[in-house]
Nucleic acid binder design. Structure first.
Lengths: 211, 211
DNA sequence: GCCTTCCAGTTAACGATGTTAGGTTGGCTA
DNA sequence: TAGCCAACCTAACATCGTTAACTGGAAGGC
């Protein structure tokens, strides 16, 4: 006995090896440029062996992305609940841009690539739970900011506000990921730009003083 | 005589046909999904014939993108110079998001796809000239806004400000292009979100009243 | 202890892709 | 009229993701 467990462990082991190799190559070369054959060679298997562990190339990406989404949500969770919603919003922006800066390729796969509509991601991640879903965390913070009464009366929709804040941060980092080679633009540091942009946007949402 | 001109006209004609077919299919199916063979079939040529008019598939995309970049710059030019820089900034934001909304696939190819560092785009478009370069137009408007003295003293860098504004608009529209299928987010209308976000950001850059 | 079953992994192949080498043809120029 | 050149074609190459069919050896039942 115990053999079944060992088999299962072995299977999990090679599965892990494939996943690790795929991650490394996706990050280094990009998704399109890494080949199933190259991944197989890296882990010293035949290309077809991968298909015994994953449905197809996209499934590799999907599984890796789920890990990254969770990592981002965890980075948000580390911000904690101590600060005021407005302070927290600034820290979320900072953490988000820091994540993108540290993992540009993962970021590209997570937020800059159109995926087929229904991947296994749906089932793998619990949506709406702020501990696993970064958007839910952001949205909740926006809702608290609105509830605090510090914001202008016309900003009363947590989703609209979350999408505004997310968009501002995402736009700044993603433009640089795509275009930072275009030397005809004098690019400023993305983290600094995002910080200033986030601050400006929050300030612009604030109820005018003495109102 | 005149035959040389006719030949040239013919060449330009088939070149145009190829370009048109490629544009239509890129927009309808996306860049990766449209095939040189499919384009060739559409214009009733052999795949190899395309290579007599364009270096490769990427060159098709590059040439089409140059047209789109010019179209965007023209849309900006139509805003004119009448309004105050701050008003103009709002209109730029509106025109930008409108363009993205009207041509999502082109937008994706222009601003959401990493391109090889040096394409022929460099030579085809005059950079820095606001009449052909949308970024230059935006930057100049930011510079005028700064010069107007209405903004906070710490915002004094036209490039940083331009990248902030651009990023905010780009982020909101590009997130929706990539993620609007993810039904677990209650997406708000991108144009409305971008309008409100742009307004908020400009307001947040303003010098505090009575300062 | 033997026989069956299962399964990780293999070999070989399929169809599709972007692209190239090497013709062929038909009109222009000298 | 001879030659040339540009436009286009046929055939093919290397590579891609993926599938069908097999193999070898261990697991499990009798």
């Amino acid at each position: 006995m115990g053999s079944k467990e060992r088999r299962e462990r072995d299977r999990e082991h090679t599965r892990r090896k494939i996943l690790d190799a795929a991650r490394e190559m996706f990050v280094r070369l990009g998704y399109e440029a890494t080949t199933m054959r190259a991944i197989a060679k890296e882990v010293e298997y035949t290309p077809t062996a991968i298909y015994h562990h994953f449905e197809n190339k996209d499934a590799l990406l999907t599984e890796l992305s789920a890990v990254d989404f969770r990592a981002l949500a965890e980075a948000f969770l580390r911000i904690g609940r101590v600060a005021s919603p407005l302070e927290r919003l600034g820290k979320i922006c900072e953490a988000y841009v820091g994540f993108a800066h540290a993992n540009p390729m993962q970021y590209q796969l997570m937020f800059m690539t159109r995926r087929p509509p229904d991947t296994a991601l749906q089932t793998s991640l619990t949506r709406g739970d702020p501990s696993e879903d970064a958007y839910a965390f952001l949205r909740q913070t926006c809702a608290e900011a609105i509830a605090s009464g510090l914001l202008r009366p016309e900003v009363n929709d947590p989703d609209a506000m979350a999408q505004m804040m997310w968009g501002a941060a995402h736009g700044i980092v993603s433009l640089q990921i795509v275009k930072h080679h275009d030397a005809w633009i004098e690019w400023r540091d993305a983290r600094e730009t995002a910080r200033a942009g986030g601050e400006a946007m929050i300030r612009g949402l604030l109820r005018a003083p003495g109102d």
